[in-house]
Design a protein around this nucleic acid. Structure first.
Lengths: 179, 179
DNA sequence: GGCAGTCATCTTAGTACTAAGATAACTCGA
DNA sequence: TCGAGTTATCTTAGTACTAAGATGACTGCC
């Protein structure tokens, strides 16, 4: 392995995480660049894959979430796929027009509504999902499953940290940053 | 009915790496989900950051590429930021209208054109870049610089693999997959 | 009970792209 | 040198969203 030059000033590792200004921003910059490239490259495959069934990647994301989690409130769906509230309305409208999901009222709160898979939607996602998963495994095949798991752990931390960090403008007290 | 169906038949673990069809797609699926979430969360910060200067993230990406690499042919720029050819035309048009880049002819080939930073563009990116880098370091602060470097390595492999993999539809012989 | 504040969703208008194809320029073999 | 094929960019039409605000519903304090 012969780890290449990877030197850090030997400062107390205890507060390496909590250092105030993250002096050395070069690793973060590089990480962001390659993260964006990887995302764009993979998302292209995902889009092309689900397009065969007349779906966009976001629509597929909704079906997938409902398939794995069951009915979800629109707000929860929004947090899950990280779009704006208008985006959820738009996407659920489209899926409803295709007959794949419906909206159902939430007994405790008349403002809220569930998104629910119709039988057609359920059948479709069940049909699509296995092939999609296989294709994804192939696209991510440059890493072994073990490496993929390590990657997942790091990305999870990264994503959570980024979601926690307040957005620069208008950072009043909103938690999500989505309007 | 918690814990949805997530089971796989237990098969010989010996050829887990080189199995022809990537049986165990669960790690890839999870990796993709958290990768997408992390990307979206971070890109929101990037977009908000550069929006203060009237730029979109893609526009900033072009300025950044030209800043670090010098003049680039539009096609190379396209590969760098992973948009379609029409997208590059659109983005360079916008930056040109803002006076930040210009197009210059490429002596050896009349079809090709360079994108070049104007003095204004150069001044702007020089002004923006340090603060942007610092902000990015903060947004990615959940990982230490060392972890970020490891992440970069894995994502680089991942992205290259994904870019190499042919897109499902219309996979004639195009290498890039961008039209 | 009533009102101020907040919240979940929807609406409207706008934008940043993409897909598909057009156009002009280049390459190369016969 | 011609023409068939390829390539780099641009054009046109369409779409998947976002931003900002509207609307109706809930909450809690008085």
């Amino acid at each position: 392995m012969t780890a290449p030059l990877d030197d850090e000033p030997p400062l107390s590792a205890a507060d390496a995480k909590r250092n105030k200004a993250a002096q050395d921003s070069a690793p973060a910059l590089k990480a962001w660049v390659v993260l964006a490239r990887a995302y764009l490259a993979i998302s292209r495959h995902v889009a092309a894959d689900v397009a065969r069934f007349g779906l966009t990647a976001s629509e597929f994301g909704i079906l997938e979430a409902l398939y794995h989690k069951g009915p979800l409130l629109l707000g929860d769906l929004q947090k899950k796929i990280l779009v704006t509230s208008g985006g959820v309305t738009y996407l659920v409208d489209r899926l409803a027009r295709k007959g794949l999901v419906t909206r159902e009222s939430f007994p405790g709160d008349k403002r809220s509504r569930f998104a629910v898979l119709t039988p057609e939607g359920s059948a479709l996602i069940k049909q699509i999902f296995p092939g999609h998963a296989k294709r994804l495994a192939k696209v991510l095949g440059a890493l072994t499953p073990k490496e993929q798991k390590r990657l997942t752990g790091m990305l999870r931390d990264l994503g959570k940290g980024a979601e926690k960090e307040p957005l620069p403008r208008e950072r009043k007290k909103g938690k999500t940053g989505l309007s």
